[in-house]
Design a protein around this nucleic acid. Structure first.
Lengths: 328, 328
DNA sequence: CCTCCGGGTGGAAACGTTTCCAATTGGGAA
DNA sequence: TTCCCAATTGGAAACGTTTCCACCCGGAGG
């Protein structure tokens, strides 16, 4: 593979000049520019990233740590973030923590070793030592969708309480009083916020305040399935099930079908926080809060770059919309 | 951030010794090992990846280029590959080409610049100049699921013709003769292979050989929706629709519902290549070929590392299973 | 005509590692 | 005691860039 030295020789200029041309071309003559670019093209020169990073102390790489890439919310977010970053000259190193704190820490260490320029983070739990040390070293961080106490990084997050409000209104309109609520871990901000907003608005929307209707999983389908079974085992008879994120809704539906059978299950309505592409296909169709994963991903990247550039960034709550499919 | 020099000083050994200890500890005394490890821990030392890569000419980074991270098949594959790579001491740089050849090329260039040690590739189309030049430079490459002509890299791929055979058998058992086949681009090997196997087995399974029942999209939901509409516009009346991958099935179903309405649509059965987690929830439930994305991802990583180590790797076709939900 | 200034350039240092090479040490065999 | 070998060590070169510094040159201003 050819180096910048080869390019310089071929162009008949010094190594320094070649470097200046290839990295923006400031303080270079038009003649030098064309010579160097021609030589680079002929040699099919591709700069050595590690060498460049070593000397310049920037990698043009952003780390993105999500908790579950199979969750369509995060895969959409990752895709949008990646595109936006590429558009702005950055590469994204994606790590998938599987809703597991230990794995998240291991990835943070890898990120540190790769010397990423900034971190997009969707945390699993409280601030870990690994994360603390990263922050201590001054790494710019932006939180995506999930917040964490005692970390004053800017965030771009769904407006959970507004979203829950939309669901509560819908539940009331539909006349539901016996609502099974399958939540997520309260150690995760989204889990805590959605539960809190639901509890706060429950009685004013005419919903039965019996806590037997409430349980929580792990924001994965498996944990949600078990949570739903626990609710059913308490002998309550919900007329509707509310899943607090996409995988949770899937798990809850599985529990209903396996415990009650397909036809009895389809008599129970379902509403979800997170809209999935197949909700229109089931009977009855599932209504859902839709929040814009792509917008969060893009805003996160833009904010992070601003932070890297030394600017200051305002946190943002992104409002949700409600897709009501109960009419169809 | 502390460097290996700081560690060496603190441990009271030379820089060379510190390096040897931290990179495996060969030819070092137990005393030196414990001194250096203690010093590293105290200083919270994390090696500078770029510097290490520059000197050693290896990055311990693998590139993974997939065509659509929102497709659950690929997100599962990516997750499995990433885990396996991490287990073996490698990091995965994930790129998402959006079924777009130009974007794929841009990512290949970034990979080259980052000096990845090997490439896991699920190509969009024919061999591009960018890819040719990468291969020319001797980069180890493994193909995942999709092959490409004139590229003799080892591959790990679903056995498409076996999978199609399972579908054909099922169609025959169910007595379907008027089958709408919504395929993918024939420039992609999976699209071509699935179509070819279907055409080859069609008549022997009692299926109407009228090509009006066949069309192809882009392996994304949008293109498949249009393809399905084209089929319906030809005035044929399929009793079952066969989608050639996950997103394709989604798009076809959308077309059916929007054109025919929900109840008429649910009179048409659906079968899919790729099993999605919600197929059990719709009426009638959707049967599907299931192929193991995680296994392909893991095998790909293991194979690639073998290739990097200088070994030789045998390509592999991975058999599928059929999930028959027509009874439930 | 001389001076000064600024754009352009070449050379060299520096980034933080790994790895080669030569030197030192310790222990066992003669 | 002396010699030799293996194990361990320190020092220095090298990886491919960017960036600093000093220098040269030409043109404008005095």
């Amino acid at each position: 593979m050819s180096t910048i030295k080869d390019v310089a020789e071929r162009a008949g200029v010094s190594l320094g000049t070649a470097s200046r041309v290839l990295s923006g071309g400031h303080n270079t003559s038009p003649k030098a520019r064309s010579l160097v670019h021609a030589a680079a093209a002929e040699l099919n020169y591709i700069a050595n990233g590690p060498a460049r990073s070593l000397r310049s102390a920037r990698t043009n790489v952003l780390g993105l740590l999500v908790s579950d890439i199979r969750n369509p919310f995060f895969s959409e977010l990752a895709r949008a973030a990646e595109r936006e970053a590429m558009r702005l000259g950055y590469t994204v190193l994606l790590a998938n923590a599987n809703e597991d704190e230990t794995q998240a820490d291991e990835y943070l260490r890898i990120f540190a070793s790769q010397r990423i320029d900034g971190l997009l983070l969707s945390p699993q739990g409280p601030v870990s030592p690994q994360l603390t040390s990263l922050l201590g070293s001054g790494l710019p961080v932006v939180l995506l969708n999930r917040l964490v106490d005692g970390l004053d990084a800017p965030y771009f997050a769904t407006d959970n309480s507004q979203g829950i409000g939309l669901v509560l209104d819908w539940l009331q309109t539909r006349g539901h009083t016996d609502v099974a609520f399958v939540g997520g871990p309260t150690t995760i901000s989204t889990g805590a916020e959605r539960l809190a907003a639901y509890l706060a608005g429950r009685s004013s929307h005419g919903i039965n305040a019996d806590d037997a209707f409430i349980d929580a999983g792990d924001f994965l389908a498996e944990g949600a399935e078990r949570a739903m079974l626990r609710i059913l085992d308490r002998g309550v008879h919900p007329t509707v099930v509310f899943g607090a994120n996409g995988p949770t809704t899937v798990g809850a539906m599985r529990a209903l079908r396996h415990r009650l059978g397909a036809s009895a299950a389809s008599a129970i309505e379902v509403v979800s926080f997170d809209d999935l592409e197949w909700f229109e296909f089931v009977t009855p169709p599932i209504s859902a809060v839709r929040h814009d994963a792509a917008a969060i991903g893009r805003a996160g990247v833009v904010g992070l770059l601003e932070l890297i550039a030394g600017g200051t960034v305002a946190s943002q709550r992104i409002p949700t919309t409600f897709i009501d499919r109960s009419g169809s």
